[in-house]
Design a protein around this nucleic acid. Sequence first.
DNA 1: CGAGGCGTATGATCCTGGTCATACGATTCA
DNA 2: TGAATCGTATGACCAGGATCATACGCCTCG
Lengths: 232, 232
Amino acid sequence: MSALGTVGQIRLFRELAREDRERVARVSRVVSFERGERLFREGDRCSSLVAILCGRVKVLKTTRQGRDLILGLFGRGDPVGAVAVFQGVRYPATAIALESTKCLEIPKKELLALLESRPSMALGLLAALSRRLVYLADRLAHEHSRVEVRYARFFLKLAESLTRTQDSKPFIPISLSRQDLADIMGTTIETSIRLMSRWGQEGIVETLKDGFVIKDMAALIQHSHGDGATRE
Amino acid sequence: MSALGTVGQIRLFRELAREDRERVARVSRVVSFERGERLFREGDRCSSLVAILCGRVKVLKTTRQGRDLILGLFGRGDPVGAVAVFQGVRYPATAIALESTKCLEIPKKELLALLESRPSMALGLLAALSRRLVYLADRLAHEHSRVEVRYARFFLKLAESLTRTQDSKPFIPISLSRQDLADIMGTTIETSIRLMSRWGQEGIVETLKDGFVIKDMAALIQHSHGDGATRE
DNA sequence: CGAGGCGTATGATCCTGGTCATACGATTCA
DNA sequence: TGAATCGTATGACCAGGATCATACGCCTCG
């Protein structure tokens, strides 16, 4: 794959003129990470924007109490750590690869220069950050719902964004441990295990080696509204 | 106050050249709201960016279960509803005035045009959204801490941003009901009342008609770490 | 003035989900 | 091959905070 084509994989750069993409390709570099490797850690100085070429990444914060909370899952085309570029010099969260991942690193300076000369790119970034804000606000608004509601909403959101089908059932091709799920929902691993194994038995969500199968979408929607077995 | 001076009150526009500020002043209008009035409602179509000239505003989302969650408090100079300008056509949340409030409304089109011609303004907006992202991420990461921890963190954050002093004690000049506090912390009003009246008795935070006095900052810091009466 | 409404206060009870403990299969490594 | 480690599973117990109920002071308005 040419460096130019590589740059074109990032949504943000796709609409740039060819000469600008070439410029990006010239100053950026590709970095690879294995599953479990850290792209960057909370508190690290940030000198470049990283954008995902392929693979998946989780971004998380660690609480004083030692618990992790996963703030988001990112994949191909997504920029990661943009906040540190525009807001501070240090990353406010940690990023860890969920699988083999390749990223493009664009030096902060180059990015800012590009933004000065190409205002349309700024609009793209503003839209990306805004989308992210809406997502976090939405999560925050439901963070105190019952556990089942939070899990159901999570799987529904995943299902709508990155579904393939498997036996006519939606398949979510992303490998998350029970601990990962707990870290996303803000529960303990026990609660995560209990709920997921119950949903497995009830034929709602099946856990596979490399992802999840949504076997009963209707039940999930029920649960996401809070009117499952228990009410609220 | 001249229209030009009015525009200058908004952080975002302050660094603009005089001619640009004049342009903004020409196309925007000032709108007033009384305490309790809505600036806009979740789901409304958004045609302009609103920036606060004076007063205070709460931005909130309503859960399906009928509960409100306050996503943020905004004051003089802050842009509100920027997300709807860059990401979607509808507001993702509701904004309500906490006191008499004056706002500047800049039509979406004008703002976008301005951004195209003045990239530095885009950087200002990117920074503002990034700051907001960090704030929400931080809240999310602590949303499952004990109630006392959340309340303590909230008051500390307020204290550091908008403190005046009263009898040498930090005073937070913002009038929030127990229900408002509950809506911020994601608890019920009873929990809010119980904690606040206890803290009042213990001489930690005193509730006044028009704000709060932090009487024992050290105790608050203790609680924010989770090592108050109970541990975690 | 009395009635009603609102914000605050406080007690009794219940239940979700956290905590602690134990166990079991699969994989790795000595 | 056996020990150790990791992810998953499941039970027993507990407590933080939600829920339900009642009450009280203050303000507004008829």
